[in-house]
């Protein structure tokens, strides 16, 4: 026997969570773009999409975030810190790739400096993932040794039952159990089976790719120039990536006062590694694309023992010139 949350009880659950002080967030189809956003009613959710166009990471690591306000006076500088907005949230209907992305980035944001903005939001958010029953040509979680029902980064995993009538509940963490205790009145015991998760074909041999990337001789391979010839150097892939985490700190204001902000930054941009002297160690687009692949599958796992990719496929799905991690690793597999 497993507990089931029936879809027709979701409105009650949302009301219950909201009265317990939780903001309820989930997949929402906007007029021209889908993403994760707050809802008041279950009708606001759209569970039918493969995955939202915008990644879950932006709810934890927003594209621009104020850090402090500064005022420069004659003999001193006044500063006021901004902290991450307080408030508990439940993300209902995350995709496994998006939830995994958060877990992949945790060690990075807690490594030599503990990023309070990230961890405050992490600690205040319950991640309820719904296992995928459909995928598209770009999904590649299985190639990354993850799965459409991966539990990585999730507090609760839900498995859909037939005809979108509800979900079987697997509580994974205490945070998940607490959140579901709030709605326990609306849950039912049942032995109904879950709809099978979608089969996502494996697109490349990850181990073979990693071995190739780790070989120092391949750093200067002509492969990099060939594969990235059509890369136009925008940041679409990095900004939609659920694990890309680079940022830049900028002061906005005048000579005497302003706001220091933490903004997304991307290794695709020429300016990313530009030195004050004018020298740029990654002066070509091929060096920048190589960095992105090396970082995700060589340097990051070397430091944190996990690949910095969860297989969502957004990089390939959205690329204006139809590039992406899938194609690059498929080509490396053939070398």
């Amino acid at each position: 026997m497993t507990r089931i949350l029936f879809s027709d009880k979701l409105d009650n659950c949302i009301a219950k969570w909201r009265s317990a002080g939780l903001t309820v967030i989930g997949p929402v189809q906007g007029e021209s773009l889908s993403g994760y956003a707050a809802v008041e009613k279950a009708a606001g959710f759209e569970f039918g999409m493969v995955l939202p166009e915008r990644p879950l990471k932006e709810l934890f690591f927003p594209q621009t975030e104020p850090m402090l306000r500064y005022t420069i006076k004659k003999n001193e500088i006044d500063t006021t810190d901004f902290t991450a907005p307080q408030g508990k949230r439940i993300i209902f209907g995350a995709r496994a790739c998006d939830a995994s992305g958060l877990a992949i980035d945790d060690p990075l944001f807690g490594w030599d400096y503990k990023d309070e903005y990230w961890f405050q939001r992490r600690n205040e958010s319950v991640i309820v993932t719904i296992a995928c029953t459909k995928a598209d040509d770009f999904c590649m979680c299985t190639s990354l040794k993850l799965a459409p029902d991966s539990t990585k980064g999730s507090d609760v995993l839900l498995r859909p039952i037939d005809k979108n009538r509800g979900w079987l509940i697997e509580e994974l963490t205490d945070r998940g159990r607490e959140a579901f205790a709030i709605i326990s009145d609306y849950l039912q015991e049942s032995s109904e089976p879950a709809v099978p998760t979608v089969v996502v074909p494996e697109k490349f041999n990850l181990d073979a790719c990693v071995t190739w990337l780790q070989n120092p001789e391949n750093f200067d391979s002509k492969f990099w120039k060939e594969i990235s010839m059509r890369c136009i150097g925008c940041a679409s892939c990095t900004y939609l990536c659920p694990t890309c985490h680079c940022f830049d700190i900028q002061d906005e204001g005048d000579t005497y006062s302003g706001i220091r902000r933490k903004n997304w930054d991307s290794c695709s941009f020429a300016l990313f590694t530009m030195h004050t002297s004018g020298h740029n160690p990654r002066s070509t687009q091929s060096a920048r694309w190589r960095q992105r692949i090396m970082h995700k599958f060589n340097y990051f796992p070397g430091k944190f023992s996990v690949n910095s990719c969860s297989g969502c496929g957004r990089c390939s799905r959205q690329c204006p010139v139809d590039m992406g991690i899938t194609e690059t690793l498929q080509e490396i597999s053939k070398l």
């Binding site: 925008c234 940041a235 900004y239 997304w264 991307s266 204006p320």
Partner: peptide, 12 residues
Amino acid sequence: SRCIKCYACRQA
């Protein structure tokens, strides 16, 4: 408000 400044418009 949706712009993320990826500069894909510029690069394309």
